[in-house]
Design a protein around this nucleic acid. Structure first.
Lengths: 229, 229
DNA sequence: ATTAGAGTCGAACGAACGTTCGGTAAGCTC
DNA sequence: GAGCTTACCGAACGTTCGTTCGACTCTAAT
């Protein structure tokens, strides 16, 4: 949930997180405010889209003046960049950590899917911004985000290729990866926490569809005995 | 590809398509120009997003003055509405027509998927606008588009429920529908006509993944004999 | 008590936005 | 060829946009 403390300071030169004794406190006032701003920005970009959202909307949401906001970043574009970068880096980090302890190829795919859904649903706003505004950033920042995205794609690709090789399967890996991303990313258009299951259950069900399909004859796992022949 | 002739005139009161003899010519000058405008609008909304696209962009693309454009519609919002409505109605119409002659439940799902992909790839720009700007329209027009969307969803839902019942399967239908839409709609983010297969081939491959999954053991259709045990 | 700078603000900048207005030139009907 | 309509345009309307500027307050170190 928390959008991150500053890491790198790109606006005016400013203090690193220094508490009262320079060591104890992890979050300076600046860091806390910046995190607040990023969180509200994610919410607003999510609701109205990057282009449709105005800095005045953000100012209102943060309870801070328009000019005051610019103490924490240098442009609207940087806000989008920060939100996207943090979301992507975190989901990749989480995926790597979870995959490290799983070796069965099929199970690894399941873990990847569940990790994706879990982070997605826990950070719905940032992830919608990541997904929806995927071509918005241009030039340097856009290239950086696209590189991170490619890394994430690659992780999934390798997972599926490994599965294919070890189990001697036959399917187009690129298309499988992109179909999987479609399935899991599309969730931002429909998921309603009051109606739909949580990440764990959805992950299992989606994994089942993706790995074994709707129709699983000859195997019995999906087929159910019917009273009428 | 062609965005449609006028159907209903919503701007200033204006002539219906009347040829020189009121019967022979199907396309008046007005209809042709309107179609041109809608086509360019779809392209621009697709490239820069609805909010990011300006009427001046459209004016430039059409080679027509800003004021002149408004002869053909009453607002930017109406443009989006027209594009979305036409795309949705056509894809539904096509789906119904194709499904009418197919009775096998599994084959019907395949036909639905292939129809979707075929229209999607043949009308990439309008379909990206439909997919990407899906929450943009508000009030009356938004409600109307959402109703059409619900109808399309319903067709797919019924298809899958029929498959489930007739084959005695067990899967969550709502999730299956939404996963399928995710798979097929996501295509606008990645499809490259110079790299990727055409709608027919992609439809087959996606249908295979969706219906039978990546891993299809015990059945041999997917498993391939390996030299090493 | 003085100073430095972090944090914040009101007010404004120029640019861009969607839309409208008054007008004109061409085409059609009588 | 008068009269009406369609198709289009230049210029501008009022608004909103992202961003900046100079000044103020508060805190904390000198």
């Amino acid at each position: 949930m928390p959008i991150p403390p500053a890491e790198t300071r790109t606006a005016a030169s400013a203090p690193a997180a220094r508490g009262r004794q320079a060591t104890a406190e992890p979050e300076s006032r600046y860091d806390r405010q910046l995190a607040r701003v990023l969180e509200h920005a994610a919410k607003i970009f999510c609701d109205k889209g990057y282009e449709g959202a105005s800095m005045r909307d953000l100012s209102r949401a943060c309870g801070m003046s328009l000019a005051g906001l610019y103490h924490y970043f240098e442009s609207k574009e940087e806000l989008l960049y920060r939100i996207q970068k943090h979301a992507f880096e975190t989901i990749i980090e989480n995926a790597k950590a979870r995959l490290a302890s799983v070796s069965d190829p099929e199970e690894r795919v399941r873990v990847f899917i569940e990790n994706h859904l879990e982070y997605f649903l826990a950070n719905k706003e940032a992830m919608k911004v990541l997904t929806h505004e995927d071509e918005t950033l241009k030039n340097g920042r856009g290239a950086e985000i696209r590189a991170i995205k490619r890394e994430y794609y690659r992780i999934c690709f390798d997972l599926l290729e490994d599965l294919k090789r070890k189990q001697g399967l036959q399917f187009p890996v690129r298309l499988a990866v992109l179909s999987l991303f479609g399935m899991v990313n599309w969730i931002y258009t429909w998921h309603n926490p009051r109606v739909d299951a949580d990440a764990g259950a959805l992950g299992n069900e989606m994994s089942e569809i993706f790995l074994h399909g709707l129709v699983q004859n000859e195997n019995g796992r999906k087929k159910v005995s019917k009273s009428k022949p």
